[in-house]
Each structure stands twice: as structure tokens, then as C-alpha cells.
């Protein structure tokens, strides 16, 4: 059979694997939902959590579709569809594909009529090189969770501070990242101001949402505050980039 990066059989294979991954999410959703109801959580509360998560996911998921489009130019649609539906990212897949191709004496982005051998070599490198968390969580997840629970049982207040400190630690790294090009401003490149300004717009909109909840007492605003601030920040990036970029 003659190989083509967009051959229908590749879509069938990727589709089957993605269906299994989708089934896992559906399985865990049903399991958690049932348990929630069994311990007395209101179905409306569970529904609100689900709807908020769904709405919040739309914009980042569209960004993943854009990554699929970007990679599809060189790898066809099926492989990027599979890789970006499981653990992976645009930068990781590009690095993995580039490393695999350069080891075969080729350059990513310049391969015309990719052979089946080149294609599966790339797919192997992509699959192997990020395969850690998927087996490590089954190995150490339970021990880690139980350790955390026993720490919480020993000292409840410290347990709460511990959780907040972990979240703050993660957020602080991303706040730092937003300013990573800030130093270029001192050499006259104003583009380094774009991410901090976008972050400021998003934070400001979040504060406005918080104010709106208090003033007009509509709780749905707080449910959608994160997606609203996310979209507002992303939308503001267009004029801010035109101005400073």
C-alpha cells in the first residue's frame, strides 16, 4: 500500500485510540458524579462545576486545534490529532519530530513525500519521549495522595496552607514567565510589555466580575468569571500587540 500522511487508515487508527482516551474521561466523570450524589452533593452543584469547566475549556481547546493545523502542514492531520489529544504540545511534538528527522539526516519542515519509515520513526520518538506521567501516576500516585491525607490529618491548618502554597507556587512561576521578555523593554523593544499588559487586563476583568457579583448579586457571573477574564485578556492582546508589537 502506498503511504500518505493523510491516508484514511491513519485517521481510523488515531480515532480508535482517541475514542479509548475519551472513554476514560467519561468513565471517571460518571464515577465521580455518582459518588458525589451518594455523599449528598447537590446535582445542581455538580452540574454547575461541569458547565463552568466546559465553557472555560473552549478557548484553550481552540488553541490546541491551531497547533494541530500548524503540525498538519508537515505531518498530515492524523498524527498531530492523536498526539495533541493525549499528553503533548506543539513545542514538544515539533522538537520530537525535528530530532527524529535530523537523526535521519533530514530537516523538519522540508520533507516532501514522507515515507512510512520516516513517519513511524517520528511517531515512536513522540510516543516514547514523553511517556512518563502516564505510568508514574499509577506507580506513586496512591502513596503521594495517602501521604498528603495523613499530613492533613495530623495538622489540618498546615494541610490547608500546604495546598494553597502549592497553587501559589505554580501561579508565581507563570507570573514570572509573563515577564520573561520584560528586560527587552530597557533596550527599546516594547513587545516585552505585551504579556504583562494582557495579564493586567485579565486580572482587572476578574476583579470587575468579583465586584459585579457583590453589587448585582448574580452568582452565575462568578461561575464564568475565569472564562470571561480569559477571553477579555486574549481579545485585548490584539490591539495591544498592534500598538506595541
Amino acid at each position: 500500500m502506498e503511504f500518505n500522511v493523510n491516508s484514511p487508515i491513519l485517521f481510523v487508527l488515531a480515532g480508535i485510540i482517541i475514542a479509548v482516551v475519551l472513554a476514560q474521561s467519561v468513565y471517571f466523570l460518571i464515577k465521580a458524579w455518582r459518588r458525589g450524589k451518594a455523599i449528598g452533593m447537590a446535582p445542581e452543584k455538580l452540574k454547575r462545576i461541569a458547565v463552568t469547566a466546559a465553557v472555560f475549556t473552549i478557548a484553550p481547546a481552540v488553541a490546541i486545534v491551531i497547533s494541530v493545523i500548524t503540525l498538519a502542514k508537515d505531518l498530515g492531520v492524523a498524527l498531530p490529532w492523536l498526539r495533541l489529544s493525549v499528553v503533548g504540545s506543539l513545542s514538544y511534538e515539533t522538537i520530537a519530530a525535528s530530532n527524529a528527522l535530523s537523526a535521519m539526516g533530514l530537516t523538519f519542515g522540508q520533507v516532501k513525500d514522507m515515507t512510512a519509515q520516516q513517519y513511524i520513526t517520528i511517531a515512536w520518538v513522540m510516543t516514547i519521549s514523553i511517556m512518563v506521567g502516564i505510568w508514574l501516576v499509577p506507580v506513586i500516585g496512591k502513596k503521594l495522595q495517602n501521604g498528603m491525607i495523613s499530613m492533613e490529618n495530623r495538622d489540618k491548618k498546615w494541610g490547608e496552607i500546604f495546598s494553597n502554597a502549592m497553587f501559589i507556587g505554580m501561579i508565581s512561576a507563570f507570573v514570572g514567565y509573563v515577564f520573561c521578555d520584560f528586560g527587552t523593554v530597557f533596550s527599546g523593544n516594547t513587545a516585552g510589555l505585551i504579556p504583562p499588559l494582557v495579564m493586567a487586563v485579565s486580572a482587572f476583568v476578574m476583579l470587575l466580575c468579583g465586584l459585579a457579583v457583590k453589587v448585582i448579586k448574580k452568582s452565575w457571573i462568578s461561575d464564568y468569571a475565569l472564562p470571561i477574564s480569559l477571553i477579555a485578556g486574549m481579545a485585548s492582546a490584539i490591539p495591544i500587540t498592534a500598538w506595541l508589537g
Binding site: 501561579i171 509573563v178 505585551i194 486580572a203 476583568v205 500587540t241 498592534a242
Partner: peptide, 15 residues
């Protein structure tokens, strides 16, 4: 630019 600034827009609100 909107999708390039997804992370700053996300961590502004969350942060």
C-alpha cells in the same frame, strides 16, 4: 496575538 497571549490572559484572572 490572541492565542499567543493565552497564558498571560489565563494566569491574570486566576492569579
Amino acid at each position: 496575538p490572541a492565542f499567543a497571549q493565552l497564558l498571560p490572559a489565563l494566569f491574570g484572572g486566576l492569579g
